[in-house]
Design a binder for these strands. Sequence first.
DNA 1: CTGTCGTTTCGGCCGGGAACGAAGCGTTTC
DNA 2: GAAACGCTTCGTTCCCGGCCGAAACGACAG
Lengths: 251, 251
Amino acid sequence: MIFAMSLGPGSLAEVAALLGDPARAHMLDALMDGRALTATELALAARVAPSTASAHLAKLEDARLLTLLKQGRHRYYRLASPLVGRMLESVMAVAAVQSPARHRPPTPRDAALGLVRTCYDHLAGRLAVGIADALQQRGYLALEDEAGALTEAGTRFLQKFGLDLDLEQKRRRSFCRPCLDWTERRMHIGGAVGAGLARRCLELGWLERRRDSRALKVTPLGLEGFRHSFDLDATLPGAGAKPAAKGATGR
Amino acid sequence: MIFAMSLGPGSLAEVAALLGDPARAHMLDALMDGRALTATELALAARVAPSTASAHLAKLEDARLLTLLKQGRHRYYRLASPLVGRMLESVMAVAAVQSPARHRPPTPRDAALGLVRTCYDHLAGRLAVGIADALQQRGYLALEDEAGALTEAGTRFLQKFGLDLDLEQKRRRSFCRPCLDWTERRMHIGGAVGAGLARRCLELGWLERRRDSRALKVTPLGLEGFRHSFDLDATLPGAGAKPAAKGATGR
DNA sequence: CTGTCGTTTCGGCCGGGAACGAAGCGTTTC
DNA sequence: GAAACGCTTCGTTCCCGGCCGAAACGACAG
């Protein structure tokens, strides 16, 4: 039998087929913020019966896309590695590009997701793109299709902002991965810098996690902080007072 | 109906399902070298009847994963964008990691693929990893999990080697994307630098495309060139004379 | 020990979609 | 014009795999 390649297209299909089921896709999407969720939570996210969810999770774990953490009578699942997260990102990026806003009933909760959410370990959404834009405009950052890099001025700026880039930077000369946003269709900051930025924003109390969603809440403190540090308006359009500098988010 | 998210996990599943069929996966894999192939060639690659292939190709084109070029009575398909290529890469990277050499009947033709092949627009395989290693060892390159960058010395070296990095470099400060190799499980050079390197090796006549495979042929000229410029032994293990400096490829 | 909760296993149902062959359409060659 | 070729459309078959509910299992709480 020569027709079975030892690796390659065969296993490509196997992995992709796992992502190709709507229920599993919803589960993986729910896990994309990096947290560990229980089987029931994932069943809820996928809108299937617990028994169905169990079968799906067994497959995903068997394929090493998820890792399992048994804790009492709960079973916590999480993405097996950043590699898996990046794979999901890249598929979503393609999905976003090739489906040019087919049907657009912009759900109310989508608005929150569109403003700012987590993307595995970093920030995504309008705010994240805005941050990337602001840093680029000031010459702190160069973000291209395939790679990104901080300038020295940018490194100093982010260190002053509270990121500890020194350790990382000694090991790796460049660690700022561009990530295509599926709502904005624009690049934002992933990689180590993106993760650090997200961590710092949560640490400062500018953003808060929500229990039920990947969307993040911008605190009043954050509203002021983003305006002051990045010249960004982090309000939801149509919610509350009209922004003073409306152009800031749109750009 | 609140249960239908406008974008996100739904379209993730849609795209992934397209990759999840073995026949389509084989087609996409065949297209991963960036060339355009006809419908019959793809049918052959996927080992399905022309009518079946036609249906698959229609779906892939409809989803904008492939673009169609009509030419006479032939229909040439190719990957719609580098984004699609990168998505396939990332899925294969996961597939390679999570299937730890399940069944290993190392096909003879796999040996050629393992040595050097194209990966969308750049080189992959043992030789490509070797090149990346050599450049890193000389301090020309820093390649990490999420990003990579040339040093100034590395830029000069590659320019002397015949890559025209000037144009690119003015536009983008950093453009050297690391790409996980599914045979070697090591990083090699993708992005603009990787593409340039591949182009230059073909241009120099060091490597030649094969008609039927993504594997490349190392010419005698290339054998000497790789040894001289990168201190690499580009022979197939077990084929021909034993390499003089065996450690060079293994590292 | 008994009940509750989180999770898995089993059995059965059902639909989507991948496969093929035959026939049709457009293009090139002789 | 006829024949060969490349590809698609149509109609049919068929099987894989997702779904659920019922029941079993293990863990914790009372």
